[in-house]
């Protein structure tokens, strides 16, 4: 069960920096990020990091922690005003892929003094970060605009070839 969770996380590491040293990884932004946490129901998303860097320019628009610029969030700056460079830059470094697993809940429950207790999981962080910006800037916001469904996904949503045949019942009783 754990291997099932860990494998996507490993694959989700930056494809670009796969052959580079960890030191380089901390300073060189990846050109592409493969996101495949939902690989059961959706095809992996090849996130074009490079073009987003060009488009947005400021790393702090999406990242709380960056390798150069400070966060744009004034609330973050109340405490994190000393250094802009963070060792943890990738989303998954803080946003857990399994935020509701028994292990993760145990860790957060025991760490009572932790300030960032109410932290989004990786999937929630991706979606809430991406869709918020996409809505404001006119980017794609539909589920299928970014995710292609697998056959299992079509079966899950009862869509594609699994679409129910239209009946009179569809209009309600």
């Amino acid at each position: 069960m754990k291997i099932k969770i860990i494998i996507p996380v490993i694959i989700a590491t930056f494809v670009f920096v796969a052959g580079l040293s960890p030191l380089m990884a901390a300073t060189t932004p990846p050109a592409q990020v493969r996101i495949d946490q939902l690989s059961k129901d959706f095809e992996p998303v090849e996130f074009d990091h490079a073009s987003h860097v060009d488009m947005v320019g400021d790393c702090g628009e999406c990242h709380h922690h960056t390798t150069g610029t400070a966060s744009n969030d004034p609330d973050c700056m109340r405490c994190h005003n000393s250094g802009a460079t963070g060792e943890r830059v990738a989303c998954r470094d803080c946003h857990a892929p399994d935020p509701f697993s028994a292990d993760h809940l145990k860790t957060t429950s025991e760490d009572r003094k932790r300030y960032h207790r109410d932290l989004l999981g990786l999937k929630g962080a991706y979606h809430r970060s991406c869709t918020g910006c996409h809505e404001a800037s006119g980017g794609p916001t539909g589920c299928l605009d970014c995710h292609l469904r697998t056959e299992a996904g079509d079966a899950l949503f009862r869509a594609g070839k699994y679409t129910p045949a239209p009946t009179d019942k569809a209009a309600g009783h």
Partner: peptide, 8 residues
């Protein structure tokens, strides 16, 4: 059971 309409 299958719904009357797709979930999307």
């Amino acid at each position: 059971p299958a719904p009357a309409q797709s979930f999307d």
